[in-house]
């Protein structure tokens, strides 16, 4: 494509670009139900505790440890929110990357769905008919 650039060697695994293939993609659980969207990726050194948040440079092998959802984009005044405010989905649950990111687990086990669960259990279940799934009868 460009002159003066070295050709990229073949890689031993699938190549994906974070922004192009992961960020803003919808995350679907094992049943195909939406869980969240990928707002950011957590990066860590191999063997590091996931709770350690530190800058890493080229002398360290860095891997994606989790998909992040929630308020990770920073506020109007700049900066980024504290790590405790992010919803993490560990990379080990990811089974496929396509037009959506697929997980091999049920969405209810992730904190990213707590708002939906809270509304279902505390609000919709108290509305007459709120515990009934009309599509299940079809």
């Amino acid at each position: 494509m460009s002159t003066g650039l070295l050709p990229e060697p073949d890689q031993p695994g699938r190549v994906v670009d974070a922004e192009l293939h992961l960020l803003d993609r919808q995350v679907l659980d094992v049943d195909g139900e939406p869980v969240c969207t990928v707002d950011d990726l957590e990066l860590g050194a191999v063997g590091d505790d996931p709770d350690i948040d530190r800058p890493l440079a080229g002398d360290t092998t860095v891997v994606v440890t989790a998909l992040l959802s929630g308020p990770v984009l920073g506020g109007v005044v700049g900066g980024r929110p504290d790590s405790s405010r992010r919803h993490r989905i560990a990379w080990r649950y990811v089974t496929d990357i396509g037009t959506a990111v697929h997980l091999g687990a049920h969405g209810e086990q992730f904190s990213a769905t707590w708002v939906e669960r809270w509304l279902r259990e505390r609000v919709f279940s108290r509305i007459p008919g709120g515990r009934h799934d009309p599509e299940a009868d079809e």
Binding site: Q11, G13, V15, D17, W91, R92, V94, D96
Partner: peptide, 27 residues
């Protein structure tokens, strides 16, 4: 930096299906 290049070439974690995603470079 407009993107991060990842390569899925790390051994999968226990119970994982997909290979681990290594940060390969910066675009």
């Amino acid at each position: 930096v407009v993107d991060l290049r990842l390569v899925l070439d790390r051994p999968p974690e226990a119970g994982a299906v997909l290979a681990g995603a290594r940060l390969h470079g910066l675009v």
